[in-house]
Every structure is written in C-alpha cells, then in structure tokens.
Amino acid sequence: MKVAVLGSNGQLGSDVCAAFLRNGDQVIGLTHSDIEVTSPSAVNAVLTASMPEFIVNTAAMHHVDKCEADPLAAFQGNAMGAKYVAQWAQQAGATIAYVSTDYVFDGKKGAPYLEIDAAVPLNTYGITKLAGENYTAAIAPKHFVLRVSAIYGHQPCRAKGGLNFVEMMLKLSRERDELRVVDDEFVSPTPTAQIAEQLVALSRSTHYGLYHATTEGSCSWYEFADEIFRATGTKIRLEKARPGEFPAKVLRPKYSVLENHALKAAQLNVFTDWRDGLEGYLRART
C-alpha cells in the first residue's frame, strides 16, 4: 500500500513512517516544507503527484498556548488543513486517518470518555482539532479519526522544547534533588509507537469512523513520574504539587482519560497497559 504521512518528521509522524515501512508499505513522508496543508492548491499538487492510497494526517498546530494566542492560525492549520486533505482523499478515493486529541473534552465527566460522549473543548486547540475531526468525517467517506492522549515518543517534540514528559522528568532528576508534580490531572500516557501500530492495523480495515486510541488504564502526572523513576531506578524525592502551584495560562481538562470502546468492539485494539507502554519506550531508548 502507498501511504502518505503528513508531519512525517514529528514525534508521532516519525514512528508512523517506521511502522508502515516495517509492514512492507511504500511510505511517502511529507514535512511542513514539503506540503503546506493550509493551501488547497499545495495539498492538491503534492498529493496528486504521489497518489497515496492511505493518508495519515498528523500535521497540526499543537502548542496550546500559541493556539490560544493566534486562533486564526490554529484554525487554519488544524481545521482547514484537515478539510483540504479530506477533500483530496474524497476525490481520489483514498482513505484518511486524522489524528485528534483528548482535549476535545472538558474533563468534567470524571470517568473514561467514550466515543459517544459529547465533545466540549475548553481551549482553542481543542476547538480547532474538533473542527478538523468534523471536516474529515463529513467530507471523506473512508476515514478514521483517532483521539490520542499524553503522547510521548523518541523523536523530539518541538512544541515542548524538544523533550517529552518522560525525558523532561529524567533530565530534571539529574539536575535537582526534589521534584514536585501535579496529582490532580489524569491521563492515559501513550507512546507514539503504539499509536503507529494501531494506524497500521486500521489501514487494513474498513471499519471507518471515530476511535479513542490510548493505552489502557490511567494515572495522574505525579503517578506517571513516579513510575518513570521506579522503572529507571532513579533516586529522587518526588512530591505532590499543591493545588494551583503550577497554574496554566490556558484552560485544560483535569480528566481526559479515554476508553478505546470502538477499537475493542471492532476487535482492532492493539494497546497495552500504560505501564507496559512506558517499559517498551524505555527499552527502545537504551
């Protein structure tokens, strides 16, 4: 299968390319310098030149603070970009996978979110990604929309200063005697390698639609940090941050745990427990 990966040099996109290559597919990696998703003419020209059968759209403006500061740019990148790619896929008869986010929810449910739960974003990033979901689903009949959560991979994350949460915790542990981490925000930390394998599995399926795609189980950021240090044998004094100790500039959901209900119903779920995901990441890191 000929697969185009938009955002191929990103934290997720790099692992997606690697997973499809291991599967024997022909991969066309497209970075921002190769394709400008906010330009319909550029999208049409680049995709028509390569004619992929399956498109993975990981291209996004995902720095939450910058999205809030420039909502027009966020909408252009996350929503209109998704629209243009979906339009090309619809016209070409290709399948598209759009990668979205847990930030489409407000976190007030307090229990794992299902695909049928109402999406109520708290910030511009979530709003624009939800718009991208809707454009993709409305335009391209053969589509997969994947919501992911708290992702981390080996490729540096530009939106987070080049360090994912795991690497940031390990870096800080080398520089400090004590760390304080919030214990009132809950997620399902998910390695990008597992998301990439899930995309490969979906590419061989015709079960189109919306999917939550995260590791099993959940934890607070404090619990995640504690497991990182336990798994790596790192000795450091880890404390729970006081409520409001690290105020965010932009509202974020306090609870954004997702349940992979649709993947399990289709018998397509490849995800393991979040602790196993971390161990796999750490093994590949050494």
Rank of each mutant, 00 (worst) to 15 (best):
G24N: 04
G24P: 04
G24Q: 09
D25A: 13
Q26E: 15
V27A: 08
V27T: 09
G29F: 02
T31K: 13
D34G: 03
I35M: 03
E36A: 09
V37M: 02
V37D: 01
T38S: 00
P40Y: 04
A42Q: 00
V46A: 14
L47H: 07
L47M: 05
T48C: 10
A49Q: 14
S50P: 07
P52N: 05
I55R: 01
I55L: 07
T58M: 09
T58D: 12
A59C: 10
A59Y: 03
A60I: 03
M61H: 12
H62Q: 14
H63D: 15
V64I: 15
K66G: 05
K66H: 11
K66W: 14
C67R: 08
E68W: 11
A69G: 12
A69Y: 01
D70Q: 09
P71C: 06
P71V: 05
L72F: 13
L72N: 14
A73M: 08
A74K: 09
N78A: 11
N78L: 04
A79D: 07
K83P: 06
K83N: 09
K83A: 09
Y84A: 03
Y84G: 01
Y84W: 08
Y84Q: 00
V85N: 00
A86D: 02
A86T: 10
A86N: 05
W88A: 03
A89I: 04
A92F: 00
T95L: 05
T95S: 05
T95A: 05
I96M: 02
I96W: 02
A97H: 01
Y98K: 08
Y98I: 02
V99D: 01
V99H: 00
S100K: 00
S100W: 12
T101H: 02
T101Q: 01
D102L: 03
F105A: 03
G107C: 05
G107Y: 02
K108N: 13
K109Y: 04
G110T: 06
A111S: 15
Y113R: 03
E115C: 08
D117K: 09
A118I: 14
A119P: 07
A119Q: 15
P121E: 10
P121I: 11
P121L: 13
L122K: 05
L122Q: 04
L122S: 08
N123Y: 13
T124H: 13
T124F: 09
T124R: 10
Y125Q: 11
G126R: 07
T128Y: 06
G132S: 12
Y135D: 11
P141W: 13
H143V: 07
H143G: 10
F144H: 10
F144V: 08
V145E: 13
V145A: 11
R147N: 03
V148W: 04
V148G: 00
A150Y: 07
I151R: 08
I151F: 13
H154T: 06
H154G: 10
P156S: 12
P156Y: 07
